[in-house]
Nucleic acid binder design. Structure first.
Ligand code: FES
Ligand code: FES
Lengths: 146, 146
DNA sequence: TTTAATGTTGACAAAATTAGTCTGATTTCT
DNA sequence: AGAAATCAGACTAATTTTGTCAACATTAAA
């Protein structure tokens, strides 16, 4: 069970925007460079994020993307879902029923797992993650921003 | 993010054994029938379970499989891991470090998610699941065993 | 007004993983 | 001997994921 790169790359990219929140737009190329992700692939992901209203695009020369809301108002859950990542574990969990529910004793377990994952994702904002991240890097190299 | 059929089918199959625990061996064909899973595919899964000592095989005519331990001593976590299912979310979580950990702010999140999944799996025994299952079916059709 | 940088879109291709099947052997019971 | 089952490993098919590309649209700056 692994999150696909959609979710992993996408969240890292959005986090890059969160770190730079309030300092103007960031281009896909810059993110691709920093995060070592294909520029073309990121385009796909930002398409979804823009349609969902998470980010705003600034077109033209020196354009880029900006978060539409403050990082502490965006949860990891939103991002993951928008990127098309499903936290289903088993297909029949989101549905209210399942064709062979009578011979299946695993449903309650999958549901509990899904709930515990969702709980973590929903209570984690981008700001939380940025804070954690800064704590690590600062303790390592003495800080990089003024 | 989905559990592969290895984990889903495998756990259902083992649960089938757990329901019949103490009543002798169960053949793969019987499980395949009840759970609507390919007989050949199940063979693959039981191969792993046998090597890991979860089940014991009884060869020859009227053979089958039996749980090697009591259902309340086997956790869902064990089964899932033995079947080769990884609960990694991201590749670099099990490892103590990661090549681009410096530009990645998502690690703490993935770790917390993994821990919450593991917690659920480790605290759920086959017996727990059988109990849940019986509760449902009994309330539905008035019970099926004597 | 031109130019260059960037976003936008949809289609496509490559790679990896998962899922499922098959054949043949061995063992044990009747 | 014959039937019913496991055991082992190879093999294929299907699906999903990942990544790439080309053509176009929009805007800012020169
Ligand atoms: S297979 Fe659908 S609930 Fe288990
Ligand atoms: S990519 Fe390895 S820790 Fe995030």
């Amino acid at each position: 069970m692994k999150l696909s790169t959609k979710g992993r790359y996408g969240l890292r990219a959005v986090l890059d925007l969160a770190v730079n929140y309030g300092q103007g737009q960031v281009s896909i190329r810059a993110i691709a460079d920093r995060q070592k992700i294909s520029e073309y692939y990121l385009e796909q992901l930002f398409k979804k994020l823009r349609k969902a209203g998470i980010v705003q695009s600034i077109r033209g020369a020196h354009g880029g993307y900006v978060l539409n809301r403050s990082p502490d108002e965006i949860t990891a859950y939103e991002i993951i879902r928008i990127l098309g990542e499903t936290i289903e574990i088993s297909e029949c969990i989101e549905a209210t029923t399942c064709s062979n529910i009578d011979s299946c004793a695993t449903r309650p377990l999958w549901i509990r797992i899904k709930q515990s994952i969702d709980a973590v994702l929903k209570t984690t904002t981008l700001q939380d993650m940025v804070d954690d991240y800064k704590k690590i890097t600062i303790s390592k190299d003495g800080g990089q921003d003024e």
